[in-house]
């Protein structure tokens, strides 16, 4: 039996909104430690790795490891029915063919209950393992979202060049070019506004703008995003949860 109670429905809403345009369905793997997901988009370019640790939940129990195949569009429709501030409890029996979803209004005496039909999903898993990182950039997630949106008007590729003291985001397209440079900054009064860049090796990587547009749908999950880049390797874009993370692994573009 799985049972997990979120203090606020808004957290699961944000997670599902961040994932559903990239993958239509995925397996939620539930263990005593929490819930994890690995899913790859249809073009096999963008991988989502989600970990919701049990401490994220107000209450959590999972007696036996279970896998729940979930259609994210359908889940999004159902959890859209609850208010952001509602308690949200998900539960499933060990051999379940449905996920039970309950919203509890914290003010009114109102409980809403839904069942979501589960899917049988047969997906290959990729072994992403621990990766070496040549450069790590941490910046406000809203700033990163704006950079991606602004650069997308110019080109279907975004080049990220990291040197010791700056990160350059560059787009070169038919109508013109754009450059945005960010440098490390410590803001003591507003730590969420700080920018850090750590570098072992200079980086020059290009990524598809349309995939970055999918990644920045996670912006509301965290005030910060951490970007880990390694030469000739996929980029990792991580949004921290209160306890856990939503990570995107994005395959780069290479010169022919």
């Amino acid at each position: 039996m799985l049972e997990g109670k979120f203090e606020e429905a808004s957290l699961l809403k944000k997670i599902v909104e961040a994932m559903k345009d990239c993958v239509s369905s995925c397996n939620f793997n539930c263990t005593e430690n929490g819930i994890s997901v690995q899913a790859v988009d249809n073009s096999r370019v963008l991988l989502i790795s989600l970990l919701i640790e049990k401490d994220t939940f107000e209450e959590y129990r999972c007696d036996r490891n279970i896998t729940l195949g979930v259609g994210l569009g359908s889940l999004s429709k159902i959890i859209g029915n609850g208010a952001n501030s509602d308690y949200l409890t998900i539960s499933a029996d060990d051999d379940a063919d449905k996920l039970n979803i309950i919203f509890e209004d914290k003010v009114k005496d109102k409980i809403s209950e839904y069942n979501l039909k589960l899917l049988d999903i047969d997906a290959d898993l990729l072994d992403v393992g621990p990766m070496d990182t040549d450069a790590t950039i941490t910046l406000p997630s809203a700033d990163f979202a704006k950079i991606c949106k602004d650069m997308k008007v110019l080109s279907e590729s975004l080049q990220i060049i990291v040197t010791k003291d700056s990160a350059l985001f560059q787009s070169v397209g038919d109508i013109g070019t754009g450059n945005i440079v960010i440098r490390p900054k410590t803001d003591i009064d507003h730590p969420e506004e700080s920018v850090t860049i750590s570098l072992d090796k200079p980086i020059d990587l290009s990524f598809g703008s349309k995939y970055l547009s999918d990644i920045i749908k996670a912006t509301s999950l965290s005030q910060k995003v951490t970007i880990k880049l390694t030469d000739q390797s996929p980029g990792v874009f991580e949004y921290k949860l209160p306890s856990g993370y939503l990570r995107f692994y994005l395959a780069p573009k290479f010169d022919e």
Binding site: V40, V45, L46, L47, L126, D127, S206, P234, F254, E256
Partner: peptide, 14 residues
């Protein structure tokens, strides 16, 4: 021209 790589170019299938 840049060619889009796919994830299995980097990560083995489990």
């Amino acid at each position: 021209f840049k060619k889009q790589k796919i994830l299995s170019d980097f990560f083995p299938t489990k």
